[in-house]
């Protein structure tokens, strides 16, 4: 069963609705002991990365996440939390994957936030992209991005620059887009993750 870290950062209604539609069973993780119950973990999150990190620390879960050996999927800000640092609020994050989360503004000429459907190119056989087209569209809403990195970027997208649409290191996965809002490709990705052990 999939556990969702419930630390109060944004709304998880859309995520649980998507899991319901896909018949993926799930439960909520409110404290450290509950991490052991589930086969895999989702870290959701919208809003401010610094604020999300603070809430995660207050929940007492922050220090345990890096020790999880089961599959972990961070979505949007939940993905950014896996990185070392965010320019949003000048915040140190979980530092599970040694990358930085940077602001689009001043780095690109395009409008910020990056909002809408963009092509995602997965490269190195990351299992959450199984049976998904190489240039499938996913829905993004974000002003901060994770830098592209040849080692940890599992999929990239382009918006003024090339950035990480998905990252992976060992059992830790992160997606910048919202699979729960990304039509059939997004549903496929959630199903793929739910099959990981």
């Amino acid at each position: 069963m999939t556990g969702i870290i419930n630390y109060g950062a944004g709304n998880i209604f859309s995520l649980t609705a998507a899991l319901d539609r896909l018949d993926i069973p799930y439960g909520m993780i409110n404290e450290v002991d509950e991490l052991a119950i589930y086969d895999r973990i989702i870290i959701p999150g919208v809003g401010h990365a610094g604020a999300a990190m603070r809430k995660l620390r207050e929940s007492g879960l922050a220090s345990s996440i890096s020790r999880i050996t089961k599959p972990v999927l961070g979505i949007c800000v939940g993905m950014q939390l896996l990185t070392a640092y965010s320019e949003e609020g000048d915040s140190p994050l979980l530092d599970i994957i040694p990358l930085n989360t940077l602001h689009f503004e001043k780095r690109i000429a395009e409008k910020v936030p990056h909002m809408g459907w963009n092509k995602v190119f997965h490269e190195n056989g990351c299992p959450i992209f199984d049976n998904i087209k190489k240039d499938a569209y996913f829905y993004f809403v974000h002003s901060y991005f994770i830098e592209y990195n040849a080692t940890f970027t599992a999929a990239f997208a382009r918006y003024g620059l090339k950035f990480s649409a998905a990252i992976q290191d060992r059992n830790f996965y992160g997606v910048q887009f919202h699979p729960e809002k990304s039509g059939e490709a997004g549903e496929r990705l959630l199903l793929n993750f739910s099959n990981l052990y």
Binding site: F13, S14, A17, A18, D20, R21, Y139, V141, H178, E180, K181, S182, G183, E184, G186, E187
Partner: peptide
């Protein structure tokens, strides 16, 4: 709508 629809 949120339960049934998979777009924003």
């Amino acid at each position: 709508v949120a339960r049934q629809v998979n777009i924003p």
